[in-house]
Amino acid sequence: MATVKFKYKGEEKEVDISKIKKVWRVGKMISFTWDEGGGKTGRGAVSEKDAPKELLQMLEKQ
Rank of each mutant, 00 (worst) to 15 (best):
K9I: 02
G37W: 09
K19N: 14
M58S: 06
D35G: 04
K49D: 11
G27I: 06
G10K: 01
W34V: 02
E11A: 06
K53D: 05
K21G: 15
M58T: 05
K19F: 13
G44N: 03
K28I: 11
M58C: 14
K40Q: 15
R43I: 12
G10T: 02
M1N: 14
K61I: 14
L59E: 10
S47W: 04
Y8P: 01
K53A: 03
S47R: 11
V26S: 13
T41Y: 09
I20V: 05
T3V: 07
D16F: 07
V15Q: 02
G42N: 05
D35T: 06
K19H: 13
L55Y: 00
R25L: 13
E48R: 06
F32C: 06
Q57V: 14
G39E: 15
E12R: 03
L59P: 02
E60R: 03
S18F: 14
E48N: 09
W24N: 07
G38I: 07
T33G: 04
W34G: 00
V46T: 06
G27P: 10
D50C: 14
E48C: 15
Q57Y: 09
G27R: 07
G39F: 04
F6C: 12
F32Y: 00
T3C: 03
V26T: 08
D50M: 08
G39T: 07
T41E: 15
D35A: 07
V23E: 00
V4Y: 01
R43P: 10
A51W: 10
K22H: 15
F6M: 02
E11Q: 12
V15F: 01
E54P: 04
L55D: 00
K7D: 12
T41A: 10
I30C: 04
K40I: 09
F6K: 00
K13P: 00
L59A: 10
K9Q: 15
G44M: 05
M29R: 13
F32A: 05
K21D: 11
E14M: 03
Y8L: 02
G39W: 04
E54Q: 08
K7Q: 07
R25T: 10
M1G: 10
T3W: 01
L59I: 08
M1L: 15
K28Y: 15
M29V: 14
T41W: 12
M1I: 15
E48A: 08
R43S: 11
K7C: 15
P52R: 02
V46W: 01
R25H: 09
R25Y: 11
Q57H: 07
E11Y: 04
K40E: 11
G10N: 04
E14S: 05
T41F: 08
V15I: 11
G39A: 13
L59N: 04
G44K: 02
E36K: 07
G39N: 12
E36N: 05
E60G: 13
K5W: 01
P52F: 02
V46C: 05
K61L: 11
M29H: 15
V23M: 11
A2I: 13
I30R: 00
K61N: 10
R25V: 06
M1D: 05
E12V: 13
A51K: 01
V4K: 00
M29S: 14
A2M: 06
S18E: 08
K40V: 12
K21I: 15
E12D: 10
V15D: 00
D16A: 14
T3K: 12
T41V: 12
M29Y: 07
F32P: 00
Q62W: 03
V15N: 00
G42M: 10
Q62H: 12
E60A: 14
E48Y: 08
T3N: 03
K9S: 03
K9W: 07
E12I: 13
K19C: 14
A51R: 02
G44T: 08
K28W: 07
M1W: 07
K49G: 06
R43W: 06
K22L: 12
E60N: 12
G42E: 09
F6Y: 06
A2C: 13
G44Q: 03
T41D: 13
V46L: 04
M1T: 10
E54H: 04
D16G: 06
E14P: 00
K21P: 03
K9C: 15
K61S: 13
K13H: 08
W24L: 09
I30P: 00
K13V: 10
G44E: 02
K22E: 14
K5F: 01
A51L: 05
F32K: 00
D16W: 04
Q62D: 14
V4L: 03
V23Q: 03
S47V: 07
K19A: 06
S18W: 07
I30H: 01
T41L: 09
K40R: 14
R43M: 14
G37C: 15
R43Q: 14
S31H: 10
T3L: 04
S31R: 06
P52D: 03
K7P: 14
L59T: 10
V46N: 02
E48F: 04
K28E: 12
L59C: 13
K28P: 12
I20C: 04
G37D: 08
Q57M: 15
K19G: 09
K61F: 09
W24T: 07
W24R: 04
E60D: 06
K19P: 01
R25Q: 11
M29F: 08
V15C: 04
W24H: 15
K21M: 14
K13D: 01
A51H: 02
S47C: 13
D50R: 11
G27F: 09
V23K: 02
G44W: 12
